[in-house]
Design a protein around this nucleic acid. Structure first.
Lengths: 200, 200, 200, 200
DNA sequence: AATGAATGAGCATTCATTCAT
DNA sequence: TATGAATGAATGCTCATTCAT
């Protein structure tokens, strides 16, 4: 199996990387000490040594994911652009995530939602809320920010679960409404709104 | 073990009931042919006979849950009341679900979100969207209905994952905004908005 | 599942057909009342009704296979041709079996060799010997015929198990020797004789 | 059950031994991780630990069998005797195998022929061909050696499958013919040649 | 004569965890 | 400090067979 590695200070990190690849490929249900060890090309005992339980490993994985997504949010050119309104910026970022980053987004949501049943993940899930709040700070009030996050989560899940293509304009409109721009009307004809799956 | 039951036409349904109790108690990860059989007081072979795979059992469970929640939505007095605006009605129903029906709601979301990783559940998850659409039909346009569902999902998950008590007024305000009543202002002071966990 | 078939006198035969397809695809280990029923598009109870045990089904399958191969042997143009010597004719028939009929040949040998461990198949395996004897009758004496069959079986298994391409000339030569044409020399250079696998 | 054996370096080999006993008694169909564990008086987990799949266990069993039979061939006094011609020597060894070693021979052929359906066994089956080739090297050319092995296999299977007693003289004659001693005539009367089952 | 339902036994395999080194 | 060996429990699933219609 694994070649002996005398000095391997990054092993812990490499195991987390491997765990993320496993969850991305087979879901949380596919993650075990064994599968992580195999993916990381590391002896089985090494994973149990660094992570006493699977929850510990999941916590580390979710934290890493949070970090990655938090950074792409904070550093996104759309949010940085002062000429772009917040709804448009968020709708564009969502489009990128649901497009080219779809696998990572799905992975992130799977880990995030796992907190529903795994109390150990709860605090790390809260950290994610903090990352988003930081990114939104100064652009709106806290109450609206919370609703923005809820809308974003709901829309992402809708697109992740359904087979419909992302409709950025619809998202932009609804996010704008949440931001209090109430007279805002959807630019897409209502009859074509994304509430009906196009195919199975 | 189970006494022999030669004639037991409702066995299939009883197994689904048992599966829902198991998932409610231990999560999807705790559901197996064995645990369902034990909970239903039925031989193991009976669960594998009626449900060739765990996915089949999960599909039946999610469908049952959809039916139950769909009915409580359609028959809810709040939605039936023509004098109550939609935002208020939805916010109240959410309040009931997050309050006394919290366990069932958590169960429903766990099954619903499992569709993320289990393609077999996707069509049944779509059915749920249909239930909601039916309940909302005639009260708003499809595009707005989609956003309403997204907002509702996002808020429910936020309260299910975090430890904060439900703030119906905040939900009402944000749902009203989505409905296009843009000048609507939150009735709670912004500083107390539900974006910060109270405990932990 | 299966559409109701009121009058279905050929069902028994269709089940045997299905069983042969299953064994051809997944081996004897893959044959069960269930897999045969599914392949035949027939209710499970129908297979247990017509074939009380798996051995019964295997016997019917082997008998059918024997019949098919016996006929292709008896009716083969090579054996019918009086100008073709027996060794050449047999080597050519083997070539056809190992070539285009390889899957059927493998299936036939699997069923035939199963008699090693399943006494119920022994008499049917003996029937096969009878088929071959009939085909060889009049072309040589019984003792030589027995050796011819042994050589044929041995060569077929060698090619079925190994990855080498069939060498008809080698087979012809060796069958000719068994027939007592002792001065016969192999036409292929001895160094290239098929005793060494060409790949892996 | 098994007493705890902390240090048991030969356990792997003992499991292979047990597997061979199980296959010898009940056939390959009777071999499972469980039956091997029970026969070896070892916990179930021990067999799955040492042999991740049944194929792995079968490979080890076939390899062991090859070794045993290869040695009895190489060290057989008949083949070692320079005054004994090859056909006679081989016919005598076959006689011993079909006589007192019949159970082991049947076991060996069952494992060997299993390679027909189990690709994992193919390379080990090829190893067996190598063992025989080594034993025959120097006594004849490769092409003839291949035919000798085919004839031997075919004859062994004939006797293993049928109920007739071994006729060493017939085998000797036919092996001699394969060796190119073409004028060789069978010493037994042709009418009594072993092509007709004596019983059933 | 034919079949859907039912069931207990068994299967290969994976696993978290323990232990000796 | 790391890790290979070991093990009991559990998993999803298939099966031959029985039984009541």
């Amino acid at each position: 199996m694994a070649r002996p590695r005398r000095h391997d200070p990054d092993r812990r990190e490499r195991i987390v990387d491997a765990a993320l690849r496993v969850v991305g490929r087979d879901g949380i249900a596919g993650l075990s000490h064994r599968t992580a060890a195999a993916e990381a090309d590391v002896p089985l005992g090494s994973t149990t040594y660094h992570f006493g339980s699977l929850d510990e490993l999941l916590v580390a994985a979710l934290r890493r994911t949070n970090g990655v997504f938090g950074r792409t949010l904070r550093e996104s050119p759309e949010l940085a652009d002062p000429d772009l309104d917040l709804a448009t910026a968020l709708a564009r970022v969502m489009g990128r995530w649901l497009g080219e980053d779809r696998a990572e987004l799905e992975l992130a949501y799977e880990l995030y939602l796992a907190a529903l049943r795994r109390p150990a993940l709860r605090p790390v899930a809260e950290e994610w809320a903090g990352e988003v709040r930081t990114a939104l700070a100064g652009r709106t009030d806290p109450a609206t920010a919370g609703a923005l996050v809820a809308m974003t989560d709901g829309l992402c899940l809708m697109y992740l679960l359904g087979g419909r293509p992302y409709q950025e304009e619809h998202a932009r409109t609804m996010l704008a409404r949440v931001l209090g721009e109430g007279s805002e009307n959807p630019a897409v004809p209502l009859a074509e709104a994304p509430t009906e799956p196009t195919g199975t």
